[in-house]
Design a protein around this nucleic acid. Sequence first.
DNA 1: TATCAATGTCAACGCCTGTTGACCTACACT
DNA 2: AGTGTAGGTCAACAGGCGTTGACATTGATA
Lengths: 214, 214
Amino acid sequence: MNPTVPPPDHVPAEHPRRAEPEYPHRSAPDRPRRSDATRAAILTAARERFAADGYERATIRTIAADAGIDPAMVMRYYGSKEKLFAAAAEFDLRLPDLAELPADGIGAPLVRHMLRRWEGDETLFALLRAAVSHEAAAERMRQIFGAQLAPALARVCPDPADAARRAGLVATQMLGLALTRYILRLPPVVAMSPDELATWLGPTLDRYLTTPEP
Amino acid sequence: MNPTVPPPDHVPAEHPRRAEPEYPHRSAPDRPRRSDATRAAILTAARERFAADGYERATIRTIAADAGIDPAMVMRYYGSKEKLFAAAAEFDLRLPDLAELPADGIGAPLVRHMLRRWEGDETLFALLRAAVSHEAAAERMRQIFGAQLAPALARVCPDPADAARRAGLVATQMLGLALTRYILRLPPVVAMSPDELATWLGPTLDRYLTTPEP
DNA sequence: TATCAATGTCAACGCCTGTTGACCTACACT
DNA sequence: AGTGTAGGTCAACAGGCGTTGACATTGATA
C-alpha cells in the first residue's frame, strides 16, 4: 500500500463506464455525431413499439431488432429503458395561437387540430398507453397538460383565475375522445369523421372555456 | 391387449389434467364448494392488483401472495392469467332506469352515478388499465359499452336510429373524466367535487343525448 | 501513418415470469 | 373404518427480461 495515495474520502464519482462519451477534445459538444443515424433509428423504433404495445410489453430487444442494431447499443446511448422512454415521449402539441380565432368558435378547430396531431404522430399513443400503468409517463402527461394545454387555453379564458379548472374540463373531453377512438376503438366513435366530431364536441369545449361559472 | 377396447380414432379430449373438477357425483353442480373462500380471495386480490398495476405488472405470484395461497391454486381454479383476468373483470354498470328521470336532466345524475361507481369498485380501474394495452380487455370494454351503456341511453334518445353514435359521444366524455381524474390524476380534475363535475358535464351529456342532429 | 476514442458485436449474468408435475393432507361419502 | 377425491404445498421447468462486460472494428485526428 502506498501511503501517498489520496485519502479515500472522495466519492469514486459516477463511474460512467462507457455511457455517452463527452467528446472532451471537440469544440462544439453538440456537433453531429457519427452515431446520430443509429440514435434516431432507435428513437423511431422505440416510439413505434411503445405506441403499439405500451411500456411493459415493448422490450429493448424488439426495439433494437426493429432498428436493426444490437440491444446493447440502446443501453449505451440511452442508459436504461426508463430513460429511453423519457426520450421517446418528448412531445409538442403545437397548439396554434388561439387568440387569433373567433372567441366563441375555438372548440371545433381545436378538436380538428388534436385529431390531426393524434393521427400524424404516434408519440401520443406511446404516452397515453404508457401513462395508464406507468407513473413516470403519467407525470409526463400532467406536465404536457400544465405546460402546453393549460397556458394556451388560459389566453382565451374570460376569468384567468379558474383557467386551470376550465383547461381540466377540456382535457377530460379531448383525452376521452382519444381514448375511445384510438385506444379502445369504440365503433361509433371510430366511425365518425373528424368534421362530425368537431361539430359535436366543439360546442362542449366552447362552453367549458367561456361559460360563466355555473 | 384387450381387443374390445374402443379404437383409438377418438380425440384424447381436452386432457384437463387437474383443472376444475366436475363433481360428477353431486346432484347440484353449483352447490357451494369447500374452496369457495379461496376462490373469492383470489378474485379480490386479482382485482386489486390488476387495478393498481395493470395487466402485465400484476403477477400471478403477487396475487397469490395477497390472497395468502400458493400460485398453483390460481392456475388450478382459473386456468391461466388471461382467464383470471376475464373472471376479475366482470362488471355491471348498474345503470338506473333513465326513463324515470326528467328527460332533459339525465346528464348530471348520470355523472354522479358513474363517479360513485368508479369510486366504489376497483374493477373499472382494472378494466381501463388493462384495456389500454391488452386487446382482450379492450374488447371487454367495448362489450360493456355495447351491452350496458348504449342500450340504456337508447331508451332516452329521441331518434333511436343514431342512438349508438350518441352513446359513443357520451362515452368519450365519461371515460375521459375517469381517465383524467382517476388514472392520470390531472390536478384540476382531481380537485373538483362530484357535484361540480356533474354541474359542468351534465349539460354536455344532455346535449349529446337530446340535441337534434347538427 | 500511427493512435485512440467512438462505434458496434457477442455472449452471458441474474432475475422474474407463467405454468406444470409430483406429492402430501383432510374431508365426505359408502 | 376405509377409501377416493377435492384441496393445498413445493420445487422446478423453460423462456424472456433488462443489463453488463469483454472484445472487435472503424474512422477522425495528430
